[in-house]
Computed example of a mutant assay.
Amino acid sequence: MPVVFRPAAATDAREIARLFQVTSEGASDYIWSQLAGPGQDLLDVGAVRYAREGVDFSYQNCLIAEADGQVIGMMHSYVMRHDPDATPSTDPVLAPYNDMEVPDTLYISSLALHEGWRSQGLGVQFLDRAQQRADALKLNGLSLIDYAENTGARRFYERHGFKIVKTCQIYPHPMIRVTGEAYLMYRA
């Protein structure tokens, strides 16, 4: 079955949020829980977040892979710039990530594929498209954060030229499904 890559549409926001839940190991649910109203479903919060326009966390920064009209994966990325006026997070779960960035790169915040679509070369195709976007924007490469526990993903990124350039300790929280270290990875 052929796979088609296309820019995401606002109507993809719920599926983007669902795939974000796959790759974030609970971090997206944690963030969305901070934004949720009483009794609000976290997936609904994520869908609203990705339906926005003109912000980093928007469907506009997502690339969709679909087969037979069904979304099978997505990549969310945006330009990482150094902001000297940014206020560092004081949230204990998020604060360790305050300086986990490589300025002037295309930051891949999520690359997710549904079960059954992994290990078929689609991740490489997503990376190729990310590199094309970074080149078109005259950025200094690609960056992302991966978790030490996610050895399969780390090996994939290392095979494709990414190097660990910084680490931080993950703050333990019941919603976060990983412990240990997070790695900032960069490919020039």
Rank of each mutant, 00 (worst) to 15 (best):
D104S: 14
L106K: 05
G123M: 02
Q120V: 00
I108G: 05
W117P: 06
V102I: 14
Q120I: 02
S110G: 12
L106P: 03
L111C: 10
F126L: 04
D104P: 08
L122F: 11
D104R: 15
F126N: 01
S119A: 15
G123V: 00
H114F: 14
R118I: 09
W117S: 10
D104W: 12
Q131K: 08
R129A: 03
S109T: 14
L127V: 03
Q125V: 01
L111D: 02
H114V: 13
L106N: 07
L106W: 06
L106A: 10
E115I: 01
T105R: 12
G121A: 11
G121I: 11
S110V: 11
T105V: 10
G121D: 08
E115T: 05
P103F: 11
D128M: 10
L122P: 04
L113E: 04
D104Y: 12
I108M: 13
A130H: 01
G121T: 11
G123C: 04
E101P: 02
D128Q: 13
L111G: 02
R129W: 02
L127Y: 00
G116L: 09
L127G: 00
F126A: 03
L111H: 00
S119Y: 13
E115K: 07
P103I: 14
R129I: 05
A130P: 02
L111A: 05
E101D: 14
